[in-house]
Design a protein around this nucleic acid. Structure first.
Lengths: 130, 130
DNA sequence: CAACTGTTGCATCTGATATACAACAGTTAA
DNA sequence: TTAACTGTTGTATATCAGATGCAACAGTTG
């Protein structure tokens, strides 16, 4: 899986795994039905405890992004049902505010922030997609 | 200061204070030279321990957003020196990626994400500013 | 059955978070 | 100088999240 862990960032390992998997699913690198590395496998590769990987997978399972099946493995689920626009807005605005506070502190202009978002979008989905 | 704390979010109290102050500084609600409520004052208002507020202020102090002066109080500093564009980009892209992964999971389009960012920008700085 | 899956119980260790009481030290204005 | 405010620090206590180790259990597949 090639997940790069930072043990000194303060960000819990299991959350770093969650973020990495989320990103790969969002970008399409992991698509519906794909099997994730087994708990033991990933734990071995990342040199961490089995239960830490299990914890990450369980959070993803409860979020509905994957399903864990005893004896079979962990699989990426089908795309989520689309939430109402209003709910999405409220949730994403919270993220946006934090990003803006950070951007301001660094002296970025609003145009620059928008430009960076567009870059990130293209990086994830490509220029053609939306 | 009217900071709304959520004791059940898992987000540490001191971090919630940091975020709230950051946001107010970014939006201009707290400008250069403004004195923040004293440690004891804010602790009393929020019904929390003095040292929890102190911890939040110390992080802001080390970030350079405020200066703590024994016997005087805590003051908002002058705007930070502007970082090179490349450094800003790298830091903000990380935030952007997370936002996009979240947006994707919720079924938002790239246009929608950009639109939300513009809204958040206007909310913080108003339509005229950048 | 063998070899793989996820799951669980038990125990342990560490560090972050938050609290309480108390005292110390610097600043300001009456 | 004193009173009343600032931030700072020492000690201690309690709780919880994170991560680990060992071991066993349970479901799936070929």
């Amino acid at each position: 899986m090639h997940i790069h862990l930072n043990h000194h960032s303060g960000e819990p390992i299991y959350r770093q795994i969650i973020e990495a998997v989320k990103f790969r699913i969002a970008s399409g690198e992991l698509s519906e039905g794909t099997r994730l590395p087994s708990i033991r496998e990933l734990a071995g590769e990342l040199q961490i405890n089995m239960r830490t990987v299990a914890k990450a997978y369980q959070v993803l399972d409860r979020s509905g992004l994957v399903v864990m099946q005893q004896g079979r493995g962990v699989f990426v689920t089908s795309p989520q049902a689309v939430l109402p626009v209003r709910q999405r807005r409220a949730a994403l605005l919270e993220h946006a505010r934090r990003l803006l506070a950070e951007a301001t502190r660094m002296g970025a202009s609003s145009d620059e922030v928008i430009e960076i978002m567009k870059s990130a979008t293209e990086e994830m989905w490509g220029r053609a997609d939306g």
